[in-house]
Amino acid sequence: MASMSFPSLILFLSFWVSLMSPACSLNCTSEKLPDSKKTFVNCTDLPTLNATLHYTYNATNSSLSVAFVAAPATAEGWTAWAINPTGTGMVGAQALLALKSKGSLFVKKYNISSYASIVETDKLAFDVWDLKVESGTSGKYVIYASLKVQDGVEKLNQVWQVGANATNGHPEKHEMAPQNLGSKAELQLVEKATAASPTGSPASAPAPTAGTNGGSRRVADLSLGGFALIVASIVF
């Protein structure tokens, strides 16, 4: 078979890279948080909306500390991260939502009781403390919080979202694109024991799960390996 010309090879490479999942390009481990005093044991590249979550789970007191990082859909938009204690989607989610009001950045608590009802509240279904928001790089908002989780829980249903507009300090509806509708995943707090590790990993430092930075690197390695085989078969 004739070898591929160099310009054609470059074009093919660009096409292949464009097909790779955006999650593979994220790297939460190298992300710099604006509050350098805040450190976290784990981080995960969330699969949609170019968002990341840094977190530490403390099994001793059943608390979870997080830093959620995402950019709003526009400069005047909003971002939100939530835990849903009753389901896997938006309805029932207990949200921490960051937005601008009169030029200042705020974080508020919302109870998402239905698709039509987004109610600001002083108290969520779980205790929240150390709540604040800061501006990060590239127009991103960083929501920090600590929250109480149920004793003995191993995983949580998390939901995240971004919107384009906020009116009078209240978020308007977000887009209904696939990446918005797919912004939900399990957050594994404790890794289950395996045959190789009968006692499991420490609860405060779980190994990366699907969707974590470690998982993204594995996907990237597999993709690049497949790409190398394809290039080899074309060139040689």
Rank of each mutant, 00 (worst) to 15 (best):
Q161E: 15
G163K: 09
K173V: 12
N165P: 00
V142P: 02
A166I: 00
G139H: 09
A145L: 00
E172S: 13
M176N: 12
D151N: 11
N165K: 13
T137G: 06
K140Q: 15
E134I: 11
E175R: 11
V159T: 08
G139V: 03
G136V: 12
K184E: 03
Q179I: 07
H170N: 08
K140Y: 01
H170E: 10
N168L: 02
G139Q: 05
N157Y: 07
M176L: 13
L147R: 12
V162I: 15
Y144N: 07
S138G: 02
Q179T: 10
K132R: 10
S183L: 09
S183Q: 05
E172R: 14
K140R: 13
T137E: 14
V142E: 02
Q158P: 01
A185E: 14
K148R: 15
N157H: 13
S146I: 04
E154P: 01
E175I: 00
K155C: 02
Q161T: 05
A166E: 07
I143H: 11
S183G: 05
I143D: 01
P171T: 05
G139I: 03
G136Q: 08
G163D: 03
T167E: 08
G152T: 08
Q179M: 03
N180P: 05
H174V: 07
W160T: 05
V133N: 13
K184Q: 05
A145M: 03
A145Q: 01
Q158E: 10
S138N: 15
A164W: 08
K132I: 00
V159K: 05
A145T: 02
V159D: 10
S138T: 08
A166S: 13
K173F: 14
E134L: 15
E175P: 01
N180L: 07
Q158Y: 08
Y144G: 08
S135R: 14
G163T: 02
T167F: 11
E154I: 05
L156M: 11
V142D: 01
W160K: 00
G169W: 06
K140I: 06
P178G: 04
S146Y: 02
H174A: 15
V159I: 15
Q179C: 09
G182H: 12
K140G: 03
A145C: 01
G139P: 06
Q158I: 15
N180K: 04
V133E: 08
K148I: 04
A185H: 07
P178D: 12
P178F: 12
P178R: 07
V153Y: 00
G182K: 08
Q161M: 15
P178V: 05
K148S: 11
L131T: 12
V153C: 04
A145K: 00
G169M: 01
